[in-house]
Design a protein around this nucleic acid. Structure first.
Lengths: 201, 201
DNA sequence: AGTGCCGATGTCACCTTGCGACATCACCGT
DNA sequence: ACGGTGATGTCGCAAGGTGACATCGGCACT
């Protein structure tokens, strides 16, 4: 058998292992080198030593190759929200801070490159928005499962996402140096100030 | 001259007038009749008595045929935000209420059909998200032009959008009967409650 | 060992999107 | 009357995306 596989993968001896991972890596490299739109699915598959058709068996479309990690974010978020008993908005904020610590910490450089790729293509921006949207649905459902009403759950989730988005943008900005988790806490405080009762009292 | 045109349009006598409007109408009908994905651009153009290529000269892609009105929303929103001197979040909420009154009122049935079309296609959902995103950019810029900081402007805008989104969802829901503007005010109040200082104090 | 099924991959053909390039034709100003 | 302009049609094509079928190694069962 090949030197690195656990038994589960022995049956893949005929093909190079981890086709999916190779495709993701190839896509990331090519998107960075020549841009998303200048990269063909055939290019990606070619660099990974696979066929175009195989790419489409593993990814719904070309964009998905860049968004495979988003499932893990959703997972951590839902778990964190479910396990706490804090108030809804605070629960979502805490959950995002956990995501920051468990998933984003130590990956700033990677995230920056990825973000620059996304910003260079409207199609990828749309996809990112959709991923966020499905994440909102999942977290909202988790809150509802705790007995919260539809509106409360949605507002808490969306507000949390807003906070995360702003904190994330600051974190990724070229001159930033604070940790993502700290930024989230700061931005949450600012949001509270802005939405507190009108008239300033 | 033809019966309904101002002089500006006289030169279109050779072609049926308002090609763009006809294409929008044809697209809307076809999307409703057989669904977005089952409708080809050639179908749309055919029903409007035009060529596929002409469609692409007027719309960037197939999805855009359903989103032509979003420019007006942005326009009203930016104007409303610019002309007020209320606090940022309140300004955005008031601006959305104005949009509700000026654009959405009296179009519930149309909006419902449109929404059901969008919900049937992930591609359209992505596009809607992107439209909202560009609207956020525009409103945030308008707030910044009034001297607000980046973070404050973004948080106020995104929170306002959150409120609008929730209110809109309620308004479009089959059993709803309140006005969109009233729903926006209600939801804004709920958001304030949810994000007020933790600990309930 | 033999047999046959299964699952991952490759191959081929095809439709649709979206765009570049060029042709066409009415209208308009001169 | 003439050439310019702008909206449209026609043609061809690269790339995205999918269905159908072929291939081939491993696996289970005999």
């Amino acid at each position: 058998m090949s030197q690195c596989d656990v038994g589960y993968h022995r049956r893949m001896a005929r093909w190079q292992p981890d086709a999916r991972g190779r495709l993701e890596a190839a896509a990331f490299e090519l998107f960075r080198e020549r841009g998303f739109e200048q990269t063909t699915v055939a290019d990606i598959a070619g660099r990974a030593g696979l066929d175009k058709r195989t790419f489409y068996r593993l990814f719904g479309d070309k964009r998905e190759a860049l968004f495979s990690g988003s499932g893990r974010v959703e997972e951590v978020l839902v778990r964190a929200v479910t396990e706490t008993d804090a108030a809804p908005f605070e629960a979502v904020i805490a959950a995002f801070r956990r995501v920051a610590a468990e998933i984003f910490a130590d990956r700033l450089e990677l995230v920056r490159v990825r973000q620059s790729i996304i910003e260079s293509s409207p199609e990828l921006q749309e996809r990112e928005l959709r991923k966020t949207g499905s994440l909102v649905v999942a977290v909202t459902a988790a809150l509802r499962a705790k007995g919260l009403g539809e509106t409360t759950a949605t507002l808490a989730t969306e507000s949390g996402v807003t906070v995360f988005r702003v904190a994330y943008a600051r974190w990724v900005a070229p001159d930033s140096d604070a940790s993502l988790a700290d930024l989230i806490a700061e931005v949450a405080t600012e949001l509270r100030a802005i939405t507190s009762a009108p008239g300033g009292r």
